[in-house]
């Protein structure tokens, strides 16, 4: 037997798959947004609002869950294109699974795709899905200490939506402190406090997403 020095990350094969998918999406001018958050943060509700607010944008949604198809059904009810992805017990989506899901969506022609990752603040941050933009959601009831507990997720995200701001009066959530903690971990992240329920702050977040889509298409 011979000794071979590898010195590669365990996820090296995933990183290659992710880069291949990203290049494919870039060539097609389709922006994939990887949406990550804990369970119950309001991912599907936020996406529903975005779909309703942007009727002129062709949107496709891939809902990843360990089981059930309730999320995809909610999105389809709004007239958007949606598929449900089952991860068979896996706690995250990797690039191979994302590429397979994207291929399954190809029958639906859209410009902006959302991948609703498995609700979990840990594992999804460790796997590059091949997305062009990482969007994290933190909801007010979860608490402003989450950046301290799950730093990697905040470091890997390009945009953070702090959702359920309509519930701020009922929780001891300090918005300013939270944003300060997030910026300390990731100075480049854009933070948008929003309420999908009242619509407050949604326009700014949607503008950010549309700008990202324009930029993606222009850099084809």
């Amino acid at each position: 037997m011979k000794l071979i020095t590898v010195n590669a990350s365990v996820t090296a094969s995933n990183d290659r798959d992710a880069e291949a998918l990203r290049q494919r999406l870039r060539a097609q001018g389709k922006l994939l947004v990887n949406v990550m958050s804990s369970a119950g943060s309001g991912k599907t509700t936020l996406l529903s609002s975005i779909i309703r607010d942007l009727p002129d944008v062709k949107i496709g949604v891939m809902e990843a869950d360990i089981a059930s198809s309730v999320d995809a059904e909610r999105i389809e009810a709004l007239g958007a294109r949606a598929i449900q992805v089952h991860t068979s017990g896996m706690c995250h989506m990797d690039a191979g699974m994302t590429a397979a899901a994207f291929d399954a969506m190809q029958a639906h022609d859209a410009d902006l795709y959302f991948l609703e990752n498995v609700g979990n603040l840990i594992c999804p941050a460790e796997y590059d899905t091949g997305a062009g933009l990482n969007l994290m959601i933190l909801s007010v009831p979860e608490g402003d200490d989450k950046p301290l507990k799950y730093p990697l997720m905040f470091q890997k995200s390009d945009v953070l939506a702090i959702t359920k701001t309509d519930a701020l009066p009922y929780f001891t959530f300090d918005l300013e402190t939270c944003i300060e903690r997030v910026k300390k971990l990731n100075p480049a992240i854009d933070v948008y406090p929003v309420s999908a329920k009242t619509g407050e702050g949604m326009a700014a977040l949607e503008k950010r997403l549309l700008n990202a889509l324009d930029q993606w298409k222009n850099n084809r």
């Binding site: 011979k2 010195n7 996820t11």
Partner: peptide
Amino acid sequence: GNECIIKEIEAE
């Protein structure tokens, strides 16, 4: 301290 790296393998 956050890594998971394949350092080396013995193989034929």
